[in-house]
Design a protein around this nucleic acid. Structure first.
Length: 274
DNA sequence: CTTCACGCCTGTCAGC
DNA sequence: TGCTGACAGGCGTGAA
């Protein structure tokens, strides 16, 4: 569910609310979501510590605590992280609750319970494989046309699954890959190595533009996503193809197609994307 | 090494 | 109306 723009929106929403707050108590309602260390040690390690600041890498959210400890959260498909002021009730899917020193609660909620949480010393972050192997993110200096060109030219697969690979580009998920390919006019099943230099440049710009727009719209609430206050994003009102099967393409009027590419539901305009 | 199918979970919805 | 199966925004694993 949440991709880079959604996780960044949550980070920015709660950064000032949670920063400087002490974690007074941790309630782990679903221990198996804690991947490191044990659920008991997770709660013990972070209880009593103060949050210094919040960061993000790809779809990972990082809560830095005083004392060189970091809470790492990955929301996977249906994870939500939101701030609740004192007095209000958490929802039925609340799985991990962080009680803060001002009476508020930071709530990790998750319907499908596929999310993952860690508490790591800051010099042990490399143990999280998905973090240590992640490629450059859109809108950063490392994400360049030559990088994309060189990386894709060495690969045999279709373009879409490669754009979803976090080791190639960090932070893209199914929605924004479909949207980027639509904006670039590239068919999701094209062999990545067959893209021309001009197409790589177009794709590079499209990825940056799609992520920028999604950030401006505070993410896409297609179904489950909520921001750090529990509110919906608004990028769902600006989607070009995702979730628009059998609706006309804004550019040419052709009905948008839906199929499976690399095992993932995929939306594209069969007329505009080649 | 890369690529692919599958499992992890629960809720929802299309189709019968 | 009620049931069933397919599917859902992600990613790690193991097999080929």
């Amino acid at each position: 569910m949440p991709e880079l723009p959604e996780v960044e929106t949550i980070r920015s929403n709660i950064a000032d609310l949670v920063g400087g707050r002490q974690i007074k108590q941790v309630e782990v309602r679903l221990p198996r979501l804690i991947k490191w260390p044990t659920a008991e040690a997770f709660a013990k390690t972070i209880t009593g510590r103060t949050v210094s600041h919040l960061s993000r890498r790809g779809k990972y959210l990082l809560l830095y605590l005083e004392g060189a400890t970091i809470i790492v959260i990955h929301l996977r498909m249906t994870g939500r992280l939101y701030y609740r002021a004192a007095g209000s009730e958490p929802d039925r899917f609340a799985r991990i609750l962080f009680y803060l020193d001002n009476g508020a609660t930071l709530i990790y909620a998750d319907t499908r319970t596929l999310g993952t949480l860690y508490a790591m010393p800051d010099d042990e972050l490399w143990r999280i494989h998905g973090l240590s192997t992640m490629g450059p993110e859109p809108l950063t200096d490392g994400f360049t046309v030559p990088y994309l060109q060189e990386t894709l030219s060495k690969r045999k697969g279709k373009i879409k699954p490669l754009l979803l690979n976090q080791e190639i580009i960090g932070g893209l998920g199914n929605i924004y890959v479909d949207e980027s390919l639509a904006l670039a006019g590239i068919h999701p099943e094209r062999a990545a190595a067959s893209l021309s230099q001009a197409e790589i440049e177009t794709l590079h710009a499209a990825i940056n533009q799609v992520i920028k727009e999604a950030l401006e719209h505070k993410g896409t609430t297609f179904r489950d996503y909520r921001d750090g206050f529990g509110n919906q994003g608004s990028h769902q009102y600006h989607l070009r193809v995702y979730g628009r099967k059998d609706e006309p393409c804004d550019r040419c009027g052709t009905m948008i197609s839906h199929s499976k590419v690399g095992g993932r539901g995929t939306h594209f305009c069969p007329n505009c994307q080649h």
